[in-house]
Nucleic acid binder design. Structure first.
Length: 444
RNA sequence: GGCGCCUUCGUCAAGUGGUUAAGACACCGCCCUCUCACGGCGGGUUCAAGGGUUCGAAUCCCUUAGGCGUCACCA
């Protein structure tokens, strides 16, 4: 059997749209699942759109997503070069061959000489697409397209055919926007007498705007590039996992997949031919699943830059509290800000109906708690827990009734990651007592 | 506008003539609980519309509507 070879052929724009990333992922997964090769090829034939370092950017992004090309600009391979601007001579040769065969012709204009493909005026062209079946388009819809521009560079429609053939690409996986230009490509393959590869045109990734309208995912929908998402604090693995399921389903109820599981389970049959809306809620959930499944140590490492104000010996402990409460890393600073800076005193917070708490009652409880806490020298979490529970027991009050005013005094906010004991431990004895005493003063 | 593609819960989706139309996210309720989370249990909401074919249609055919794409010396 012929070796499966797929390619990802982006133009170097310095931006990795999530739809492009998904295309690359599927091409990669398909090749790898079949024991084939995945090729990265840069389509930079439009010299006016040159972006510095864009090739490195693409390579780095793929690497972060764990999509590793077998061949590419910096990966080597038997079909180099993998950058189209470096292959100009090749396209020129084939374009001239087409002119000789009378399938193309020269055209003069003020820009210089270009070569156009001669399209049949009648009949129709049919090609097979794995997702859509046979697609037929009348040749009368086709124009004599430019093959070689007057600057000597090929157009996309020409270069991709030459390269896909020369690089022995077996399956072309790309977006639906190329469906209508595929007959032109097919005609080219026929003109050369080349074998036609298998086409798989993927449905686009859509975005939902605030007003509910749905359109192709774009910047108006917020973070829409892989890098935007990383910046927002999602794990690359979570993004890849989510994106893989956006348009492909494994026919089981499994949702969490490692890259190797993805490769193992991937098949073309699971690909969906209708557009899929990118759902940030579900990405959040999946991201949370990844965090929860991490060890405290690993989470602390990944959240390192957001933990900068916490002393090293407490980072892993903090991680254990945060990892079940976070969907993206960028939420961490707001969540733990109170550890460093106590929000302004607000007496309203000391009133809580459910726990039957009033500012007056709070003062009593805090005062007694301060007395108890001052005597504690072993400020470990376990010891704090022990002392606090016996303190509550002796008081005859309900746990919530005692904890509420303490939490408010310590954090000055109703919601905290972790309970009062956790906060006491994180804050340390000195600061804890300072905050408690300060609240007491203001309450009296 | 021509041509092409698409259409099952709000979203991702299973489903290929006979099912109570899975599952997940989100949402709601309950339990757990010192707050918020986590975890557990439960709930509502779906076959775009209209015609056929058939004993029987989400599944097959036709029409309509809507969405998207494409008509470049961009990719």
């Amino acid at each position: 059997m012929k070796k499966i070879r797929t390619r990802f052929a982006p133009s170097p724009t310095g931006y990795m749209h999530i739809g492009n990333l998904r295309t690359a992922l599927y091409a990669y997964l398909f090749a790898k699942s079949q024991g084939g090769d995945f090729i990265l090829r840069i389509e930079d034939t439009d010299r006016t759109r040159y972006v510095a370092d864009a090739v490195e950017f693409i390579e780095n992004t793929l690497a972060a997503a764990k999509i590793i090309p077998d061949e590419g600009p910096h990966h080597g391979g038997n079909f180099a070069p993998y950058v189209q601007s470096e292959r100009a001579e090749i396209y020129k040769k084939y374009a001239e061959e087409l002119v000789e065969k009378n399938f193309a012709y020269y055209e003069e204009s003020e820009n210089g000489v270009a070569i156009r493909q001669k399209m049949p005026k009648t009949g129709e062209t049919t090609f097979f697409d794995v997702l859509h079946g046979n697609i037929t388009i009348s040749n009368s819809e086709l124009e004599d397209q430019i093959l070689l521009k007057s600057d000597g560079m090929p157009t996309y429609n020409f270069a991709n055919v030459i390269d896909d053939h020369l690089m022995e690409i077996s399956h072309i996986i790309r977006g639906t926007e190329f469906i209508t230009s595929t007959p032109k490509h097919v005609l080219l393959y026929k003109n050369f007498g080349w074998e036609i590869p298998t086409f798989i045109h993927l449905a686009p990734v859509m975005g939902k705007a605030e007003d509910g309208t749905i359109s192709k995912l774009s910047k108006r929908h917020g973070a829409t590039s892989f890098n935007d998402l990383i910046e927002a604090g999602y794990l690359p693995e979570a993004i890849t996992n989510y994106v893989a399921l956006l348009g492909w389903n494994p026919k089981t109820n499994q949702e969490i997949f490692s890259m190797s599981e993805l490769i193992e389970k991937f098949s073309l049959e699971g690909l969906s031919k209708s557009p899929a809306v990118f759902d940030y809620d579900k990405l959040d959930w999946m991201s949370g699943e990844y965090f929860k499944n991490m060890s405290d140590e690993d989470f602390a490492k990944v959240a390192e830059k957001y933990f900068s104000e916490i002393s090293d010996d407490k980072k892993v402990y903090l991680a254990s509290l945060i990892k079940t409460r976070v969907k993206k890393l960028s939420e961490i600073p707001d969540m733990i800000k109170f550890l460093k800076i106590l929000p302004d005193f607000d007496i309203e917070l000391f009133t809580n109906k459910r726990n039957k708490i009033t500012p007056e009652k709070s003062a009593e409880i805090i005062s007694a708690a301060v007395e108890m806490l001052e005597k504690i020298s072993d400020w470990s979490f376990e010891n704090l827990e022990k002392n606090i529970s016996s303190f509550i027991e002796k008081s005859g009050l309900k746990t919530g009734t005692v904890m509420w005013p303490l939490r408010i005094a310590l954090a000055m906010q109703k919601v905290t990651p972790g309970g009062v004991t956790e906060i006491l431990y994180l804050l340390g004895k000195k600061i804890s007592l300072e905050r408690l005493n300060s609240a007491l003063e203001k309450l009296n």
